[in-house]
């Protein structure tokens, strides 16, 4: 029983990471209908920035906050400079740009920080009560992810800028007619995605260690989370992330063993795409004409 609880908590911790990556993907997908394949590499690069700041002697939370801000600015800049010119271009052009970004970030990280695997600190105490069964980092990571989700939710739900972002994603033509600068909203969406990815990267790095290929598998899980929840539904992606995380851990521990865990994600993606293409919480807008 205790082992089961431990597996579930660890699953929720991973799930929070997948939920965040899924959310980052959905934020961009909603307004552009593109999957940003570079999302994982961007998160990895952000984590390297945090690592460099820590190496320079910054306190953990100072480096954390700075990394989030730098990532937001970086995401915004990428959209303004690289994506905006291809906004109206065919899907394939965008896919090529995304893959280009992926390769660039990956090689840039390898070139600047080299390919050796680096430890990355956790800001949380190593163990907490409950017979030392549950890791402090898992609990802390879940808490951080919940705070990020709550902040994002509040921003989208309760602020005028958040409302404008939702409007721009739903109906860009009408959004322009009420004076919303839609293209800038896409930029802010990229900034937010990059910032969320940065948090996910910093939370997962103490577990998987830091190297340029750290996020490859994790983005795949994030993608599975987004598909499971419904690629056009941010909160579906969050729930999807937690489901995938727990499922992965339980299957890994009791059914198929850890080697096949990534395969589970792939099988999940394919299964969802075949059975329920809109995901569990996909589009539920009622329209009457």
């Amino acid at each position: 029983m205790e082992a089961l609880i431990q597996q579930v908590v660890a699953g929720l911790a991973n799930g929070g990471i997948y939920a965040s990556m899924g959310l980052a993907l959905v934020m961009i997908y909603q307004s552009t209908h593109h999957i940003n394949f570079a999302q994982g590499e961007m998160a990895m690069f952000s984590t390297f920035i945090a690592w460099a700041l820590l190496q320079a002697g910054w306190p953990y939370w100072g480096a954390f906050g700075a990394t989030v801000l730098i990532s937001f600015a970086g995401g915004l800049a990428i959209q303004r400079i690289i994506l905006k010119p291809v906004e109206k271009a065919p899907v394939l052009t965008n896919v090529i740009v995304f893959i280009g970004l992926l390769v660039i970030f990956n090689s840039l990280a390898g070139w600047i920080f080299d390919h050796t695997i680096k430890p990355f600190p956790s800001p949380f105490p190593k163990f907490t009560g409950a017979g030392k069964l549950i890791s402090g980092h898992d609990l802390g990571s879940i808490a951080v992810m919940l705070v990020v989700l709550a902040l994002l939710y509040s921003f989208l739900r309760f602020t005028p800028a958040g409302l404008a972002m939702r409007a721009a994603a739903q109906n860009p033509e009408s959004a322009r007619l009420v004076g919303i600068r839609v293209s800038w909203m896409l930029g802010v969406g990229w900034g937010l995605s990059a910032a969320i990815g940065a948090v996910a990267g910093m939370m997962v790095a103490p577990v998987v260690y830091l190297d340029p290929n750290m996020m490859g598998g994790i983005l795949l899980y994030g993608f599975a989370a987004a598909l499971l929840g419904g690629i056009d539904n941010p909160w579906g992606a969050v729930i999807g992330g937690f489901i995938v995380g727990v499922l992965e851990n339980l299957l890994g521990a009791y059914v198929i063993g850890t080697e096949l865990k990534l395969t589970v994600a792939l099988v999940l993606i394919v299964t969802i795409l075949t059975i329920k293409p809109n995901g569990l919480f996909g589009k539920a807008v009622v329209t009457r004409v």
Binding site: P160, L163, A167, N171, S174, A175, G179, T287
Partner: peptide
């Protein structure tokens, strides 16, 4: 008021009105 009304159909009535005054 565009052709087809251009409503933000997944948003509430009140949110639609707020958006009208966005600027």
């Amino acid at each position: 008021v565009p052709d087809g009304r251009g409503t933000f159909s997944a948003l509430t009535v009140e949110e639609n009105l707020k958006l009208g005054a966005y600027t």
